[in-house]
């Protein structure tokens, strides 16, 4: 027989049994929706966690202040040398004049400060380099480099050493946060998978007599299994649709609140911007869960 015809029959059989076993299909789809929803929520939580953590990471930097008598070309040479370090993500040079301009702008409304500055003969502010590392634990390497480099003579102070304890602690908190997030993700995803597997096992258990009849009538195992796998995929497809739609009002409501609490990213905007990627991820998870669970659940009943 042509394989095309067989596949067509299997797919038709899967759709038909999905439709005709309405209650079983509804229950399985709802449980699957729960599982896919958990997976989707984990996705969003990870996005939120990553954004919050990188936001915190972004707040950490070190500043190198140069002596007021340091020549600008020496500072620029130091800038270039530090920028070469692989640990450095970005570096910004603030000249003495820039620092003064910023200072004036910040205190524009304060006449006392402005007048005091005007009375000074020289610019009292130091030139500085603001350095951001690739990750918080690398600040120490950068700080050590500065300490031992030839530029030490023109450096007045490096504020890393003042903030060292805070940065180290933050670095530990961030990596612990990531590990806990990953652990929770794996645990919840495993629970979701087990719940789906058991629900589909139950749905197939109900049909075990039918399966044995199909086998006795002379159907091959693949031909019997096929429609159940198609039904399993359908549970997943519907669950992915329902979940994706559910996330619209949920992120709409929760997004701004989370953004306020964690700072930065609004989940609703993320949902809209990544709508198709999110849907595809949920769809793939749903289909994979449904088909794999069916294949596993039907195995024992095919041994007739």
């Amino acid at each position: 027989m042509a394989t095309g015809v067989t596949i067509q029959r299997i797919i038709r059989g899967g759709f038909m049994s999905f439709w005709r076993n309405g209650w079983v299909s509804l229950t399985a789809t709802l449980v699957m929706t729960l599982a896919v929803f958990v997976i989707g929520s984990l996705l969003f939580s990870n996005v939120l966690l990553t954004s919050a953590l990188s936001q915190i990471e972004g707040q950490v930097d070190i500043s190198v202040y140069f002596r007021t008598d340091a020549a600008e070309q020496d500072i620029l040479a130091a800038n270039a040398a530090i920028a070469q370090l692989p640990q450095v993500r970005s570096i910004a040079y603030v000249s003495r004049d820039d620092a003064l301009a910023k200072f004036r702008a910040r205190h524009a409304g304060n006449a006392l400060i402005t007048q005091s500055l005007d009375e000074l003969a020289d610019n009292p502010l130091q030139a500085s380099l603001n350095i951001r590392a690739e990750s918080p634990e690398q600040y120490e390497v950068i700080a050590r480099f500065l300490e031992s480099s030839v530029y030490q003579a023109i450096i007045d102070k490096v504020n890393y050493f003042q903030n060292q304890v805070v940065i180290e602690r933050l670095s530990k908190v961030l990596s612990a946060g990531r590990a806990v997030g990953l652990g929770i993700t794996i645990a919840l995803a495993a629970i979701a998978v087990l719940v789906v597997l058991n629900t589909i096992r139950l749905a197939i258990y109900v049909a075990r007599d039918e399966i044995s009849v199909m086998k006795v009538v002379g159907a091959s195992s693949a031909y019997v299994r096929g429609p159940f796998v198609v039904s399993g995929a359908l549970y997943g497809i519907f669950a992915a649709f329902i979940t994706t739609v559910l996330f619209y009002p949920l992120t709409f409501w929760f997004g701004p609140q989370a953004a306020k609490f964690f700072g930065g990213l609004n989940l609703f905007h993320y949902y809209l911007a990544h709508f198709f990627q999110i849907f595809l991820i949920l769809l793939s998870c749903g289909i994979l869960l449904g088909t794999l669970s069916s294949v596993i659940a039907i195995r024992r009943y095919l041994k007739v």
């Binding site: 038909m16 009849v213 002379g218």
Partner: peptide, 24 residues
């Protein structure tokens, strides 16, 4: 009897032929 409950009389009989690879 052991008929497939979610299939009609026609489909129950057709199933045996489909399983054996008969043409539509």
């Amino acid at each position: 009897f052991r008929l497939l409950p979610s299939k009609t009389a026609f489909e129950n009989i057709a199933f045996a032929m489909e399983a054996a690879g008969a043409a539509d």
